[in-house]
Structures are given as C-alpha cells and as structure tokens.
Amino acid sequence: MALALLVPGGRGQLGRDLVAAAPADGLVHAPSSAELDLTDEGAVADAVAAFAANARDSGLRPVVVNAAAYTAVDAAETDEARAFEVNAAGPERLARRCAEHGVPLLHVSTDYVFPGDGTRPYEPDDETGPQSAYGRTKLAGEQRVLAAWDRAWVVRTAWLYGEHGPNFVKTMARLASERDTLSVVDDQLGSPTWSLDLARGLVSLASLVARGATPCRVLHATNGGEVTWCGFARAVFAELGLDPARVRPCTTDEFPRPARRPAYSVLSGKAWEEAGLAPLRHWREALSAAVAARAVP
C-alpha cells in the first residue's frame, strides 16, 4: 500500500525536498507554516483529521513528517517563548492529533539538543544538555512528542543545506563573489547534510513505520563523515571551481554569536542502520552531487 504524507513546514528547505522525494504513487500535502500553523490548535486538529480521512479513503497509509520549526538560532536567545511555541508546544499538539487518528508521526530534531562537548559520535540515548534557547526548545519538543504518542519517532539531523532557503553553502557562494578571502570557524566539528538526502531517508523511514515496524524511537540521520565549518567551506569553494585557500581558519571566540554553538555535533548513524535503513552517503559525495544537480549555487 502506497504512502500519504502530510508535511507541516512544507515550503521550507527540508519540506520542499520531502515533496521531491515522496513516492509518485502516493499522495503528499505540504502546507507552509502560514497555511498550517502548529501554534493553532484548531488548525492542527482540522488538518490531521482531513489528511487521515483522505488518505484512508484513497487506500493509502498516512504518515505525518513534521518539518516545521523555529530555526533562527540566534534570535531564539531573546525570543525563547515564541521558539518554544513552535518547536515544543506545536509538535505536541500535532502528536496528540496524530494519536487521535492513529497516524504515525516523524518529528525532525537537531544536534543542538546535545552539549557539544563530545569526543565520539553521539548515540540517540546519550545524555542531552542543550546550550542554547533553540536547543532547549527542540529538546522539549522531542520529549513532548514522544510522551504524547507511542507511534511517534524523533529524527535528529545536523548542518542542513539544500536548494531552498538560506543555508551555509549559499552563504559561502555569495561571499566568494564579494570577498577575496573570508574567515570561517575551524574548531566546530559536524556532518554537513544535504536536505534531499535527509528527505529520502525520512521517506524510507515513513514507509517502514507505515508497515508497522517499530525501530528505536529516536534516530540520527546525517550524511556520513565529519569536517569543520572551515573544511566544509573549502570544499564548497573547490566544488565551485574556486581556490579553497581563500578560506582562512578562525576560532569560535573570534566569531562570537548570541547563541552558543556546539563544538562537536557529529551524530552516530548506528541506530538508523540497525532499524533497517540505508545509511546516508558521505558528506563530500553528497556535496558534489548537490552542486552537480544545481541544487545549490
């Protein structure tokens, strides 16, 4: 039986790639955050009820993939109440309505739930300890979703970039045309992740849970390998045919931001593979594919 997907946040970077990755024999409804505001109880109730009924009337297996989030990491430091409504209270509303209609829910979360002081890839059950308002609200969202519905899954990811919306790769491409050299932090380590690869992985997970499989309820999904932001920027320059030496390393202390960034953001994909899901390819291979596909500038 084919899938039906409801994707809150469907006009964002990940949401649009979820639409592109959705199976052609199914159904996908991807409303924007304005069209489906997770802070509006009535809107959430109506959307899930209509989606569940439509999917089942069409003979499809319904799954909700929540790509809606407050992602302005620095702004959240002074706007935590709003970030909490979108990242925690809203997903809880969504999970409760999914439970009411028996619809599995995949909720996308972040590496920022961890303290960022690790020395080996974080496993899903490692101790959390967010160091920013954004991270606190995303962790609260995870906890509320899992408590509200026993057929909800949390998928943490990191360092997303893609065709739609602002992201690091686009910023590097823009700065390359504006400056002879630029400085990028070289003491933060993570795994750059092409949003289309993540979307494809989420669709595979949606298919698995729709068939009644019950893997670990918290999973990690990023492209493989690890690199610093400086190394990532140099790789972007190389893919664009530019001199990577134009990117110079600096420290986090030399580039202060309102929200504290994790020094170590590498997530282990072990549980993902143990759930029967194919690992996402290495980050360098994904970046090459993204540039070749003109998915990024």
Rank of each mutant, 00 (worst) to 15 (best):
T157R: 01
L160K: 03
L160I: 02
G162M: 03
G162D: 06
H164N: 08
H164M: 08
G165I: 09
G165P: 07
P166L: 13
V169W: 00
K170C: 02
R174K: 11
L175S: 02
E178G: 11
R179G: 03
D180H: 04
T181D: 06
T181V: 13
V184S: 10
L189M: 10
S191H: 07
P192K: 09
D197R: 07
A199K: 07
A199R: 06
A199L: 04
V203A: 07
S204K: 11
S207N: 15
L208H: 06
V209P: 07
R211V: 12
T214Q: 15
T214A: 15
P215Y: 13
C216A: 15
R217W: 15
H220M: 08
N223Q: 10
N223M: 09
G224N: 10
E226Q: 15
V227K: 01
V227F: 01
T228D: 10
C230E: 03
G231V: 08
G231H: 01
G231I: 02
F232C: 03
A233P: 02
R234S: 02
R234Y: 04
A235Y: 03
F237Q: 13
F237H: 13
E239G: 07
L240E: 03
G241R: 02
D243N: 14
D243S: 11
P244G: 06
R246K: 15
R246H: 06
R248I: 13
C250V: 12
T251C: 08
E254R: 13
F255I: 10
R257P: 06
R257E: 14
P258N: 11
A259K: 09
